[in-house]
Simulated assay, not measured.
Amino acid sequence: MKIGIGIFLSLLTFQSVLAQKPSDFTIVFQGQAKVNVPQFERESITNLFGTVLGRTIESHEDHDLVWFDGGGFLKLAYHSDDMVIPPSQFIKSMQLGLLVPSSEYEKVMNAIKSSGAKPVLPEVEKYQDHSNFYYFHAPGGQIFRIVNSITTMPKTGEGYVYDAERAQKYGADEYGMKKYIFAFLKRGPNRDFPKDKANELQNAHMQNIIRLANEGKLILAGPFFGDGDLRGIYIFDVPTLEEAKALTETDPAIQAGSLVMELMEWYGAAALMAIPEIDRTLVKKSIID
């Protein structure tokens, strides 16, 4: 029996859709929160989060913990009716956001709608556009919104959420790593300079470091403690040893022979690329003042 390629691919797509279970959904809750729920709603709310959305539920005598991708969890504490706020008052309370990757957003939204969970104020225009957000009341009244997120991608490991946009920005490979050029600054042969000349050379050395950092070439730099021959390190974000060598040769301390440099290719966390941006928020006084 022959099947056209288009029909065959359609069948595969259809089968893959059917094969996805609620536990396959990627639903991220960032942090922890506690929600008070009427005791009589316990079965309904565990059905929503456990059966409909496929979340792992850890049951205790008077509460449940609902676990989400990314390590966040929701504590559902069960009380008598007079101990919780009426459902009509939840519109005034905090709304809890659940991040869902774009590829799964429609499926998760439809699963919630099919469960019977009530939408929030469907007559209000703000809540009618479901392309990016869908607001709903969980049993008991608490308002949740699912967020159509382009950066929350399918799970890659327990407790971690893959951010494709940031990975691309930092040049990360599939392991979250990238290549750098690691430079060891060592004591050079020419160290006996008059004090004024040594201070001038050190200032020029620091100015060059700042320039390289501002150009995005130098990710990290710093001296070692003590008075050994190994004086400090540079980490360059450049592809080749040759380019790193050319950059080190712009250092006045290298030019004067006060320092010499040993370069090596190094494989490290791409998260190091975030250091310069963070550093700018931590500096109270310039090191060259």
Rank of each mutant, 00 (worst) to 15 (best):
Q142T: 08
D173E: 09
H130F: 03
S115W: 04
P139K: 08
R191D: 10
A164E: 15
P194T: 07
Y134L: 02
N199D: 05
I143W: 03
A172H: 11
L201K: 05
F136G: 06
K178I: 02
L121V: 03
Y134Q: 01
E158H: 11
H137M: 09
K179A: 07
S114P: 00
M177T: 08
Y170C: 08
A198R: 14
F144C: 09
R191Q: 15
F144T: 01
I143K: 06
H137T: 03
N203K: 15
K186D: 12
A204F: 03
I181R: 05
F182S: 10
A172G: 15
E165W: 10
E125F: 09
F136R: 08
A183H: 07
R187M: 14
Y162L: 14
R166E: 10
Y170F: 12
G141V: 04
P122K: 01
A164G: 12
N203V: 04
I181K: 00
D196G: 14
V120F: 13
G140W: 06
T151Q: 13
K126D: 00
P194Y: 13
Y127T: 02
Y175N: 15
E125I: 03
D192S: 14
N132A: 11
A183G: 13
R166G: 02
P154C: 10
V147F: 13
Q142M: 08
S115D: 02
P139M: 02
